[in-house]
Simulated assay, not measured.
Amino acid sequence: MLDQTDLRILDELSKNSRITMKELSERVHLSSPATSARVEKLETAGIIEGYTIKVNQLKMGYFVHAMISVIMKSSHHEPYLSYIKAQAPFVIQNYKISGDSCYLLECKFPSNAVLDEFLVGLSEHVNYKLSIIISK
């Protein structure tokens, strides 16, 4: 069971996973060894699965943000999943969902031309509905 200190540690690490243990311990009002022990406990319990970075997609040149609802043409999903794996640089997330669609793809593309090329390949495997993100 997580207590308030564990929740504060998780909150601080989610804001900045590169924070030093010294800084983290000051923010959660514990000693550095106690903070390190709690972080290790959270890692061992599988609550903290890893540390990552947040990449600015616009600065990387990915200007087109799209959500694509995927409707399978058949019950055989492997060709679609292989295509998505091959298109990994553009795919942010491939959610398996319930409802009108089978999957919801979140993607970023450097241009509409690259998006169009992606959709042409995608249409060989599935039907889809495209939504472009205008703003957050």
Rank of each mutant, 00 (worst) to 15 (best):
Q4L: 13
D6C: 10
R8L: 15
I9N: 02
L10T: 02
D11Y: 10
E12S: 15
S14E: 15
N16V: 06
S17T: 09
R18E: 13
M21R: 09
E23T: 11
S25E: 03
E26V: 06
R27S: 09
R27M: 13
L30M: 11
A34G: 06
V39K: 02
V39D: 04
V39F: 04
E40C: 08
K41I: 00
E43V: 15
E43M: 14
A45C: 01
G46T: 01
I48C: 07
Y51S: 05
Y51L: 05
Y51A: 06
I53G: 11
L58F: 09
K59V: 03
M60W: 00
G61Q: 09
F63I: 09
F63G: 02
F63E: 07
H65T: 15
A66L: 11
A66E: 13
A66F: 05
A66T: 14
I68Q: 05
V70C: 09
I71Q: 10
M72H: 05
K73S: 06
S75C: 00
S75T: 11
E78M: 09
P79Q: 04
Y80H: 08
A86K: 12
A86D: 12
Q93G: 03
N94H: 06
N94E: 08
Y95S: 08
K96V: 09
I97L: 01
S98H: 14
G99M: 07
C102V: 00
C107T: 15
K108L: 04
F109N: 05
P110V: 03
L115K: 04
E117N: 11
F118H: 07
F118Q: 02
L119H: 03
V120D: 05
V120Y: 10
G121C: 05
S123T: 00
V126Q: 01
N127W: 03
N127A: 11
L130G: 04
S131P: 00
I132W: 07
I133S: 08
S135N: 15
S135A: 15
K136C: 10
K136Y: 15
